[in-house]
Amino acid sequence: MAAPRAGTARPSGDAEALVRLARPDMVEVDRLILERMQSTVPVIPLLAEHIVSAGGKRLRPLIAVAAARVVGGERLADAHRFAAAVEFIHTATLLHDDVVDSSELRRGKVAAHLIWGAPSSVLVGDFLFARAFELMVETGQMRALGVLAHASSVIAQGEVLQLTRAHDLKLDEETYLRIIAAKTAELFAAAAEAGALGVEAPEGAVAALRSYGLNLGLAFQLADDALDYGGASETLGKNAGDDFREGKVTLPLLIAMARTAGREDAFWRAAIDDGKRGDEEFRRARELIIGTGALSATLDRAGAYADAAKAALRAVPASPWRAALADLADFAVSRAA
């Protein structure tokens, strides 16, 4: 998957305008989330609440709501259900990811599997997937249900592809972009598409909003990749350097390896292949990634995807909602700058 051509200047942005506009809708979405994560099995709501309430702006359900609103949708009951379902799908994948990656933090809190154990985390993730599909079935909108069902399949395939290429120094950029398109960007795209379908938006708008979500998701993930080497735990919601310590080969590392080929091969092999990934090795990797320009190159690539996301919005009418979605695309990158 090739990136759009990168621009030069990166405008700043934030998510606050979108949060303000969507607040009345998100009250209903949050009500649905709280209601549907309940169970007579006590550990389920306890564990689900631990991660669902752990901060964050709920970007994916926000995008679903905004996609419905930006096309003029007014009867949003189905869009609210899709938004809640998107959050459950996302939360389920986080629970599963943290077990697979042995992560210690999630959204700034101790990872659920360290409190309740890996089996409970995986099974509660399964419970949330099931709740998501119950919400979707209630809408009776089979096309939107199909979009989110397909997204769930794509995400799982992306997870498996990433797992099979873990610690792989021969990973190429095209394959890496396929992984993040599946793991991250697909749910952004499906959230926007389902939100638009939920209010019966015109086909052109549905396609444009899907494109917006896909490009936004790619920008968001690449900025996260950069943040792992240039950010702080407070910004990330996880420990800075976690990707490196887990041996994940992300775009900044791929670019740095290419630019230091023949000079630092032994270091990269020791770190990624042999597992020598302590604090000293992280500092050295960070120096190489920043020094070779790999960090700024990653942010340029993220910026290009953000620009593509904003370009897709030209297909929907100008409004405060469209402006807020454009600001969100800028924010996806500027938070890592």
Rank of each mutant, 00 (worst) to 15 (best):
L299G: 09
G73T: 10
G213D: 03
L325E: 07
G291R: 11
V154R: 11
V154H: 08
A270M: 05
Y212V: 02
R75F: 09
V147L: 05
V147H: 06
T292A: 10
G13Y: 06
I289R: 02
L94G: 00
N239M: 06
K170N: 14
R165V: 08
S211Q: 10
D30G: 06
A132F: 06
A67M: 08
R106Q: 01
R269K: 12
M1H: 11
A144Y: 08
A332T: 07
G241I: 02
S12Q: 12
Q221N: 01
G55R: 11
E28F: 08
L105Y: 04
Y229D: 01
E234C: 02
F88R: 03
A196I: 04
G213T: 05
A54V: 08
D168Y: 01
S319A: 11
W116V: 03
G237F: 01
S319H: 09
I272C: 09
D265G: 04
A17D: 15
V333L: 05
E138M: 09
A68R: 06
V29D: 14
I44A: 10
L123I: 08
L299I: 15
K276N: 03
V41L: 13
E234M: 01
G198W: 09
P4Q: 11
L214H: 09
V43Y: 12
I44L: 13
A312H: 05
I115V: 14
G213H: 03
A258N: 03
G72N: 09
A297G: 04
A156Q: 10
A189E: 15
S102P: 00
D172Y: 05
F282D: 05
G262Y: 13
L236K: 01
F267R: 02
G247N: 00
D279K: 15
R75A: 15
A79L: 07
A318Q: 12
R284S: 10
D98N: 01
A84R: 05
E246D: 13
A3K: 02
E35N: 09
E174S: 13
T40E: 14
A232D: 14
S103T: 02
A79Y: 05
A219T: 03
A144Q: 12
E193M: 10
V316E: 06
P4S: 11
D168E: 12
D14K: 02
I51L: 11
D225L: 00
E174N: 04
L114H: 08
L209F: 05
H167T: 11
R81K: 12
A311D: 14
I155R: 07
P24A: 13
D228G: 01
L214E: 14
A240T: 14
E74S: 13
A258P: 00
N215Y: 01
A285F: 03
R314P: 00
L62W: 08
L76W: 03
H113Y: 09
